[in-house]
Simulated assay, not measured.
Amino acid sequence: MGVRAALAVHPASGRGAAARVSGTVAERLREVVDHLSLAVADTVDESRELMRRAADAGLDVLVVIGGDGSMHQGVQFCAEHGVALGIVPAGTGNDLARALGVPGEPHAALDHLAASLADGARRTIDLGKVGDTWFATVLCAGFDSAVNERANALRWPSGPRRYDVAVVAELARLRPAPLIVDTDAGRLETEATLVAVGNTAYYGGGIPVCPDADPSDGLFDVTLVGAAHRRDLLRLLPTLRSGRHIDHPAVTTLRASRVTLEPANGWTAYADGDPLRPLPLTTTCVSGALAVVG
């Protein structure tokens, strides 16, 4: 039996970029799969229902056009149903695509995906899990999750520059908070500004907050910034996009397969760029939880 695929399109992703390329993507996919169904949805609930119907009909691959929020929904479905994920990035950050070496431009990504489908190329990556929710990139809390929240609310500018504007705005509200990071590799109790638990390296549209994170080693990379003053963060910011922030004395890094963040200090955790839940929480790295095309 040949490959049965579904194409999930979130038309609003990338300010309409997903909708604009969807016809081209569908046409190209029909050349390399035996059956293609379409799941065009404007809401998360609608998307999940369309994916479920595709799974009931028999499905090997789910191709998602969109940004990290769209990929996050695709990851939930694929991890739970044993379906491989195909990625065509068309969003603002595209951090999962970046981490997995998928071309950032949709048409180039489509060429890569079509070739991989034709060759039957698959690989498995780890995922993080909090309760019943999976994440593929980075779980963060503190200053960076506040930046995420503000960036998501901004209408201007577009692209990664939104995160830069949000960083400047949130600096004025910066307040360290007590944090316990309890892991299978040790326990830290400190005043903290932010914590990032990375399955992959990137968040915020290409910021390598956990620069050495490898989604196939069965471990999270954790980056913790202590009770940094605003001037410390201002010194850190220029180094973030190069990954050199981990050399700053206020930054601690570690690796672990299980991470608990507590107490309930008013921080809300974000994962894959979307709000997840307030602290406290525990997340576990699940080895080989997701199959990816390519």
Rank of each mutant, 00 (worst) to 15 (best):
T24A: 12
D212M: 10
R241K: 11
P238F: 14
V222K: 08
V63Q: 10
D214V: 10
R52F: 04
G128V: 00
H245T: 06
R231K: 13
A169N: 01
L29G: 08
E31L: 15
F135P: 00
I125T: 02
R155E: 15
L100M: 09
R244Q: 08
G69S: 11
L276C: 12
P106E: 10
I180V: 15
D60L: 09
V292N: 06
V292L: 05
R255E: 04
G101C: 11
V251H: 00
G131A: 11
V168I: 14
V61R: 07
H248T: 03
W134Q: 02
P208Y: 10
V3N: 07
V3A: 08
Y202W: 14
A90V: 02
A169R: 13
H248A: 13
G82Y: 04
A192N: 10
L154M: 10
R20H: 11
L59E: 05
G69K: 02
E105Y: 03
R52M: 10
V9N: 02
C210Y: 01
E262W: 13
D247E: 14
L174V: 06
R235F: 09
S216T: 15
D232H: 14
V40K: 06
T193D: 10
L59M: 12
G294C: 08
W267A: 12
V293S: 09
P157T: 11
V168G: 00
Y202T: 05
A213E: 04
Y202N: 13
P89N: 11
T133Y: 04
V222I: 15
G91C: 09
S158K: 14
G204A: 12
R28K: 13
R173A: 15
V40Y: 06
G14I: 04
C285T: 08
C140K: 07
G142N: 00
A41S: 15
R155I: 01
D214F: 05
P89W: 01
H35W: 15
L234W: 12
P160S: 09
E170G: 00
A192D: 10
G198C: 11
P157W: 05
I246A: 08
A97N: 07
V33L: 12
V75G: 00
P103K: 06
M51F: 13
A5C: 13
G294V: 12
I87M: 02
L219A: 13
L7S: 00
S145F: 00
A118E: 14
F77W: 12
L50K: 14
L179S: 07
L194R: 06
L237D: 06
L110M: 07
D272C: 03
V165C: 01
L254Y: 09
G91W: 01
E31D: 15
L139R: 01
E170C: 08
R122N: 05
D182K: 08
G67M: 02
R15H: 14
A109Y: 04
L254W: 06
D247Q: 11
G91V: 04
V181E: 00
R30I: 01
Y203N: 11
